[in-house]
């Protein structure tokens, strides 16, 4: 009991320090992006959206891998080591939620940028479309988890995750072919002609900041999920132990899954 409390305290402390550091780096990144980096010659100030858009897009592609690996680990460990499998599942759900958050940011900031620079909110260009499909796949994953009955959530989620991971490369290629056959007029010159060295500090600070933030929120979400699992187990145990004749529920049985 003693050691459990102290571990809890240590992780709480590490978490707080990490959060403070992340906020500091985020502030630096913010200042770099808005005030120190030069204004883009072609796009003007709106080009600064780049510093949030691209790191979010990058991270939105990293977290699905964590989800996939955790889901595979879950499927492998499910029968062999149920406790470890639960941990893997916590990582999977946390990674999926964080992916959706980053992909949403990528989509929204991209649209805001597109409206100002291209004059349109959206185009069915292959990059936009694949990002949208990635978003859709992970929202479908979260919906499945939400709608599944208790006790099967993790397995069903892991299965969908494997299917989604198989789907992503196919989506990527098909959309690419699709769009090379119908070239869209919007893409001509643009932001892709390389990054000016004077923009590197702002860009790298923001990548670091969002990476730290992503790591923080992922770990936090995993911790919350672990707690929920432990509570679930505790309640299951109490159900088993309680005397059926004077059975009394201790508190509202508001299970269902809140996540």
């Amino acid at each position: 009991m003693e050691s459990a409390t102290s571990t809890k305290r240590t992780s709480l402390m590490i978490g707080s320090v990490w959060l403070v550091l992340t906020l500091v780096v985020l502030t630096i990144g913010f200042r770099q992006a808005l005030f120190l980096s030069p204004t883009d010659a072609e796009q003007g100030d709106v080009g600064r959206i780049f510093y949030w858009h691209v790191p979010s897009a990058m991270l939105g592609l990293v977290f699905p891998y964590i989800n996939f690996v955790a889901s595979l680990a879950f499927l492998y460990l499910r029968r062999r080591n149920p406790l470890a499998a639960l941990t893997a599942d916590a990582w999977a759900v946390a990674a999926a939620e964080v992916s959706v958050v980053f992909a949403s940011i990528c989509l929204v900031t991209g649209m805001l940028w597109g409206r100002a620079v291209w004059g349109i909110w959206w185009t069915w260009d292959w990059r936009l479309t694949s990002e949208l499909l990635l978003w859709l796949l992970y929202v479908a994953y979260l919906m499945t988890r939400r709608m599944s009955t208790d006790g099967q959530t993790s397995t069903l989620g892991a299965i969908i995750s494997v299917f989604a991971a198989l789907d992503v490369p196919l989506v990527y290629f098909s959309i690419r072919w699709f769009r090379t056959q119908h070239p869209s007029p919007v893409f001509g010159g643009g932001a892709d002609s390389g990054l000016d060295p004077s923009m590197y500090p702002a860009f790298l600070w923001n990548v670091l900041a969002w990476l730290m933030w992503g790591g923080f929120i992922l770990a936090f979400r995993v911790a919350v999920e672990r707690r929920r699992q432990r509570l679930d187990q505790l309640e299951g145990l109490r159900m088993l132990e309680s005397d059926i004749d004077n059975f009394k529920l201790g508190g509202e049985p508001e299970r269902g899954n809140a996540f």
């Binding site: 479908a140 099967q152 789907d167 098909s174 959309i175």
Partner: peptide, 27 residues
């Protein structure tokens, strides 16, 4: 079959099938 294990299965099938099928549909 996956939908059988969820609360509202009629809704579940398209929610999962459509996004996964998009490359095939496109093709």
């Amino acid at each position: 079959a996956l939908g059988l294990r969820t609360r509202n299965r009629e809704l579940m099938l398209p929610l999962v099938l459509f996004p996964i099928s998009i490359p095939a549909l496109l093709a």
